[in-house]
């Protein structure tokens, strides 16, 4: 799959590209430690994000992080921030990052728990059958992400993005599930999941 001819392919296609398309992300080709530092700038060094609407990666199933990074790299999922960041990351680098974050402990939520909202969210999660894919403890499995202990603002954003068809990618499961879900239900679900204590 590699060789002299393949090298020429790279050059010729690169020259044919519109400007701005050829860039590789800042983490591409770096050692894992440096990549973790770069990703940690937003997602937290230990994968627990302290930035608004930036997801925590700590405790995520490796395949969940792997698939999303590949969607970004392949431009199958569009994000002004993450699509450029993922350019040039090799499969093996993506998998190493995913393994690193999977092993990090999940921090407790920094927002105050509202028991009424929490209970409402718990009821909705049960009613929607979220646990049938995300597991009874909402720790996720395979390509389905951990929801327990995720940032509340991020959960709100992600669910609304799915509902409003702003979040693409080859896996349309969540778009279909979120269709027509009202804001107040999303707020309750996000509050419950964010405050669900991690194992």
């Amino acid at each position: 799959m590699t060789g002299v001819r393949t090298g020429l392919v790279a050059l010729s296609i690169w020259l044919a590209m519109p400007s701005g398309m050829a860039d590789t992300g800042p983490a591409a080709g770096k050692p894992l430690e440096e990549q973790i530092a770069i990703c940690g700038g937003c997602h937290g060094e230990d994968g627990n994000s302290t930035q608004e609407a930036v997801p925590s990666l700590a405790g995520q199933p490796p395949l969940a992080v792997t698939n999303q990074l590949i969607y970004f790299r392949e431009r199958l999922r569009q994000s002004g921030i993450m699509t450029p960041q993922a350019q040039g990351l090799e499969d093996s680098a993506i998998q190493a990052l995913a393994d690193y974050y999977a092993a990090q402990p999940v921090a407790s939520s920094s927002t105050t728990r509202d028991d009424t909202l929490y209970d409402q969210g718990q009821g909705l999660a049960s009613q929607h059958g979220c646990s049938s894919c995300h597991q009874p403890d909402y720790s996720g499995q395979r390509q389905m992400p951990r929801l327990a202990g995720q940032r509340e603002d991020y959960l709100n954003k992600a669910m609304k993005d799915y509902r409003d068809r702003r979040r693409g990618g080859p896996d349309t499961t969540m778009i279909e599930i979120m269709t027509g879900t009202p804001d107040e239900d999303i707020h309750a679900l996000a509050h419950f999941l964010a405050h669900l204590e991690a194992d």
């Binding site: 799959m1 590699t2 393949t6 392919v9 790279a10 296609i13 690169w14 044919a16 590209m17 519109p18 398309m21 050829a22 590789t24 591409a28 790299r73 431009r75 199958l76 569009q78 350019q87 040039g88 990351l89 090799e90 499969d91 068809r165 693409g168 349309t172 778009i175 279909e176």
Partner: peptide, 22 residues
């Protein structure tokens, strides 16, 4: 690695991405 290469087709392809679920 071949993974980093992008043809100019990519931009064309992205235009089709909004039509996900009917």
């Amino acid at each position: 690695m071949f993974m980093t290469r992008r043809s100019s087709l990519t931009a064309l392809a992205i235009a089709g991405l909004t039509a996900s679920v009917s």
